Amino acid sequence: MGTLRVVVVDDSGIFREGLVALLNAAGVEVVEALASTEGLGAAIVLNRPDAVVLDVRLPPTFTDEGVQAAVATRKQNAGVGILLLSTYAEPAWVRRITDRIPQGIGYLIKDRVADVERLVEAIEIVASGGIAIDSAIVHGVVSDQRPGQLSGLTEREIEVLSGIAEGRSNAAIARTLGTSVRTIESHVASILRTLGIPESPDAHRRVLAALAFVQGQHAL
């Protein structure tokens, strides 16, 4: 992938300007920065970005305008990745969003923006059709699991699946868990079998596995 091109949408001028500066310094081209969803569709048509980075709560009601804009953007621009930013870790929101946008979607806590490497990684993931969920939300999903959900997975497989939901590569998961990439590959294969995810390109199967994790059920 060449230089990432993104549109940023956030109502806070200070946060928006800071985010633009961070992304530009990291080599990401911010083609437009907006204070609301007004004009977002035109900005996408004009600039053809790889992804849109936007706040969940935007004017005028500051409830779910960002989510509504994300859904509308995906309907009109199937290839544009979407990274939602929020002040809060809200697993229920993530379940709702991934149910409506099953790929090329990410959700990060705003506090993570200072971690530019993770921010850019998340944008790259959603721009390529993957899923990137904030680790705080992933931990919340694990805590919310009820008996019977994701049944059949071992504790270690849940840890690996958590890494997949965060958008981590096998190598990154292996480093975090202190094991080998081959071991992680074995766990991933077992997870996909247990969840009943059919044969397809590996990246797509990982997306389905991440969805199964976030939504707390088998993928099929």
Rank of each mutant, 00 (worst) to 15 (best):
G2H: 08
L4M: 14
V8D: 01
G13E: 12
G13V: 12
I14E: 12
R16P: 15
G18Y: 06
A21G: 12
N24Y: 01
N24P: 08
N24V: 02
A33G: 10
A35P: 14
A35C: 11
E38G: 07
E38Y: 07
G39A: 10
L40K: 07
L40Y: 11
R48Q: 15
V52Y: 04
V52Q: 00
L54R: 00
D55K: 00
V56R: 01
P59I: 07
P60Q: 00
P60H: 04
D64H: 04
D64W: 05
E65C: 05
E65L: 08
G66R: 02
G66P: 12
Q68Y: 04
V71F: 11
V71W: 02
A72Q: 13
A72K: 14
T73Y: 02
N77C: 10
G79S: 11
G79N: 13
V80K: 00
G81R: 05
I82D: 08
L83C: 08
L84H: 08
S86V: 15
P91E: 10
P91R: 00
R95E: 15
I97N: 12
D99I: 03
I101R: 02
P102H: 06
G106M: 06
L108T: 10
I109S: 06
K110M: 09
D111M: 03
D111G: 13
V113Q: 06
V113G: 02
L119D: 03
I123E: 07
E124P: 05
V126N: 03
G129K: 00
G130R: 02
G130V: 10
I131S: 04
I133T: 15
I133A: 07
S135F: 13
S135A: 15
I137Q: 04
I137N: 03
I137L: 10
V138D: 06
V138T: 12
H139Q: 11
G140D: 04
V141N: 00
V142N: 01
S143L: 15
P147C: 07
Q149H: 03
E155G: 09
E157C: 02
E159D: 15
E159Q: 14
E159C: 02
L161G: 05
G163W: 06
A165Q: 03
G167C: 10
G167Y: 02
R168S: 12
T176K: 07
L177E: 10
L177V: 11
T179L: 09
R182C: 03
I184P: 01
E185V: 03
H187I: 03
V188M: 06
I191N: 05
T194Y: 01
L195Y: 04
I197W: 05
P198G: 03
P198V: 10
E199W: 11
A203L: 12
R205L: 04
A210C: 08
L211M: 07
A212E: 06
Q217W: 00
L220I: 04
